[in-house]
């Protein structure tokens, strides 16, 4: 039997959060962490977590699994169980609503701040705007972000300043638009990032890179933003 320790907190009942230990029969199978959560919820319907696609593309079920942020649906037990123990907590750094569900308002607010949409006021052609495969390739590793918040909530800089530092996820998206050959908002975008907090609170800790379930590299994108700021200033 696997020992599963889960962070529990219901604001209407509990004065403070606690860890509840469940046991789970793996039947020798290497299932995903989400499968474990689903099974436990079937037995205890009060256990609360978010989930949707269960295949790692919707970004709902980001949780902290045995100390590392990740998506429950694509994290197999074999990767995270140590000494027959599994510990599941909500993503750190943001307020907890209930059990494993966090309040992501600040995370989304940072995303909205970077103007996450194409800016191009030139009249659109009757067909698509053309883009070379080389220019399109610059968006690879950027557009795939699923907004799961695993990276930003693993980032100490975001823990300390979630209201001022955009965080790895938002910055990855900022660069996704800066790097898009169809975008005309570069100047405006850079001007909005050139303060001591938005970008420059990144100290290259690289927790974001380590935890990203899609294998993306926000630190590299942040480096590109810095270079763009630098070359636009000189």
């Amino acid at each position: 039997m696997l020992e599963v320790s889960i962070y529990r907190y219901n604001p209407e009942v509990d004065s403070e959060p606690y860890m509840q230990v469940f046991s789970y029969d793996t039947q020798g199978k290497d299932v995903m962490v989400l499968d474990v959560l689903e099974k436990l919820k079937a037995e205890d319907p009060t256990l609360v977590f978010r989930r949707s696609c269960r295949e790692g593309v919707c970004g709902s079920d980001g949780v902290n699994i045995s100390g590392k942020n990740g998506l429950a649906c694509i994290t197999p037990l074999s990767e995270v169980v140590k000494n027959n123990k599994l510990v599941i907590r909500p993503l750190p750094g943001l307020p907890v609503i209930r059990d494993l569900v966090i309040d992501m308002t600040q995370f989304y607010a940072q995303y909205e701040k970077i103007q996450p949409y194409l800016i191009n006021n030139t009249p659109a052609p009757a067909i698509e705007r053309l883009q070379s495969p080389e220019d399109r390739a610059k968006l690879d590793g950027l557009y795939e972000c699923i907004l799961c918040a695993c990276c930003s909530t693993a980032c100490p800089s975001f823990w300390w300043n979630p209201d001022k530092f955009i965080g790895p996820s938002g910055l990855l998206q900022a660069y996704r638009f800066l790097a898009d050959s169809r975008d005309r908002g570069t100047e405006d975008r850079l001007a909005n990032l050139d303060d001591p907090f938005s970008v420059f609170r990144c100290h290259g800790i690289m927790n974001c890179v380590q935890v990203c379930p899609k294998g993306l590299n926000p630190t590299k994108a942040i480096g590109h933003i810095r270079s763009m700021l630098l070359s636009s200033a000189t």
């Binding site: 949409y117 194409l118 191009n120 659109a124 698509e128 705007r129 053309l130 883009q131 070379s132 495969p133 220019d135 399109r136 968006l139 557009y143 638009f177 898009d180 169809r182 975008d183």
Partner: peptide
């Protein structure tokens, strides 16, 4: 036009 990152052919 809204920005969907479609894959591209050589002619763009």
């Amino acid at each position: 036009h809204m920005g969907l990152p479609f894959s591209r052919n050589d002619n763009g």
